[in-house]
Structure formats: C-alpha cells, structure tokens
C-alpha cells in the first residue's frame, strides 16, 4: 500500500520536475537578453538537482546525493561567473 502511494507521488514529482526543467530550458534558449538566459540556467540546474533527489528516493541508492552536490557546486560557480561577466565583461579582473 505505502509503496503504491509513494510510486504515484514520485511519478507526479518527477513529471512536474521534468516539466519545470523544460520551462527553465525554454527561458535559457529563448532569452531575450543574456541575463534571462543566465536565470534560466540557474533554475535549470536547481531543478536537475531536485530531480536527482527524487530519483534517489525511488531507487534507494546513495550515489545520487554526491551527484546532486557536484551539480550544485558547478552550477553555483558557473552562474556567479556568468553574472560577473555580464556586469564587467570579464570574469577575472
């Protein structure tokens, strides 16, 4: 019984997060300006992190945790560098 409830909820969550990923990708590809694309990328990687967390619940494996953290770190650094680039035109001054 509890497994059925969880599978339904997990499927819902994964579909919702997948759609959210699509929305973020749309904003990332469409723009219109550079800062819109970066916001899209930012949302994209957070959604991907959460999707990995739900996959972790579904399979019960612990590998997803590390993958999530790596995505988070890389995404954060990438977005900060891009924001800095938008402001100054250079990453390293």
């Amino acid at each position: 019984m509890s497994a059925q409830i969880l599978v339904v909820a997990l499927t819902f969550a994964q579909i919702a997060l997948g759609l959210a990923l699509g929305c973020a990708a749309y904003r990332c590809l469409r723009g219109p300006r550079a800062q819109d694309r970066v916001v899209g990328l930012d949302t994209l990687y957070v959604n991907a992190m959460l999707l990995l967390v739900t996959s972790g619940i579904r399979t019960g494996g612990s590998f997803f945790f590390e993958a999530t953290l790596v995505i988070g770190m890389l995404g954060f650094v990438a977005t900060v560098a891009l924001a800095k680039f938008l402001m100054r035109g250079e990453v390293i001054e």
Partner: peptide, 20 residues
C-alpha cells in the same frame, strides 16, 4: 512523504512556469 513530494515539486513547477 507523498504530500511533501507533491507540494515541493508543484512549487518548483509553478516557479518555472512563472519564469516562462
């Protein structure tokens, strides 16, 4: 767990729809 999952992922989806 199911409630938390549904509520959390719905919020994420609404936020991303807002982005579009």
């Amino acid at each position: 767990i199911a409630l938390l999952l549904v509520a959390g992922s719905s919020l994420v989806l609404i936020g991303s729809i807002g982005l579009v």
